[in-house]
Simulated scan of single mutants.
Amino acid sequence: MHVADNTFLVTGAASGLGSAVARRLIDKGAKVVLCDLSEDVEGLSTSLGGSALACRGDITSAAQMTAIFERAAVFAGEAGLAGVVHCAGVVSVGKLLDRDGNPTNLDAYAKTIDINLVGTFNVMRLAAAAMAGRAPGEEGERGVIINTASIAAFDGQVGQCAYSASKAGVVGMSLPAARELSRYGIRVMAIAPGVFETPMMAQIPSEAAQALAASIPFPKRLGRADEFALLAEQIITNPMLNGEVIRLDGGIRMQ
């Protein structure tokens, strides 16, 4: 699939990984629907010009996301939506027991699962429906869905039960979804980023960030958002990438 002259929807587009993906796709000649809860998505859309359409919405809401995909269909025109890069999500930290031995709040766990896993499923099901009716390309391809997992799905640390479980669920959906949607010519992939320079990472102390960077075999630095965007572009353009999760982490293995 070519990036140029196609339309893609990017969630979590107002900042971080999603913003980098949106900018890269537009630089390569695509139109992009920018989906985010934050009002910052409006400013980003303005800066990117007529190739971008801002849509504010909650990825866990069936009604809101259905409306956004309907707007995306109009924006894409007759060619239809070619792909979705789903970057929206939250990072959560919470131990099973607090210092006094009390159990953690169940609602906090459920919220993380709802946003990171149920939200991903919601976007994926609507993306599949939007792309299934597109005219196929030369090899029968109609679209591509790229979800965002995390190395925490494999190397979860203390306090990451909710986050690791939510991202492990994203990993677990990749292959069965790819198998199911193969009949429509829709590929499904996931990227599992390591430690990246994003607004979420900026919330932790600088010493902790430096320690994480030092633990990466090579390169010994935090990942850059555009490196994530580059991989998303490569997945879009390489038809043999399907049903797989790619770690993008510089070789780090968390402990």
Rank of each mutant, 00 (worst) to 15 (best):
T148L: 01
A214R: 00
V118G: 01
A162T: 00
L230R: 13
V195A: 14
A110T: 15
G185E: 07
A162I: 00
F228N: 04
E180W: 06
A225K: 02
L231W: 12
A153T: 13
A177Q: 13
E227N: 01
E138A: 15
E207Q: 15
S174C: 06
P193H: 11
A229L: 14
Q203R: 15
S166G: 08
G185V: 03
A214F: 00
A132N: 11
G137Y: 05
I236N: 00
L181D: 08
S166D: 08
I115L: 12
E233L: 06
E180T: 02
I235C: 01
A110R: 14
A129L: 09
F218A: 14
T148M: 03
A165W: 02
D249N: 15
L241K: 05
L117V: 05
M240L: 15
V123I: 08
G156T: 00
V123H: 04
I115C: 07
L248G: 10
R142M: 12
I246F: 07
A232I: 13
K167F: 05
L212Y: 05
K167G: 01
G172W: 13
L222H: 01
G185N: 07
F121Q: 02
G172R: 11
R224C: 06
L248E: 09
I115H: 08
N147G: 06
E244T: 14
G194R: 10
F121N: 01
A208F: 13
I113D: 12
R183C: 09
F121G: 02
A135S: 10
E180H: 05
A130W: 12
Y163L: 03
A135K: 10
L212V: 05
C161Y: 06
A110S: 14
V123A: 07
A229S: 14
P193T: 10
Q203L: 15
V170C: 03
K111H: 07
G223D: 11
S206M: 15
I146G: 03
I191K: 11
A153F: 08
S182V: 07
G119R: 05
M200I: 10
P176G: 03
A152L: 11
T148S: 01
P239L: 09
A213E: 11
E141Y: 13
A208V: 12
G194I: 10
K220A: 01
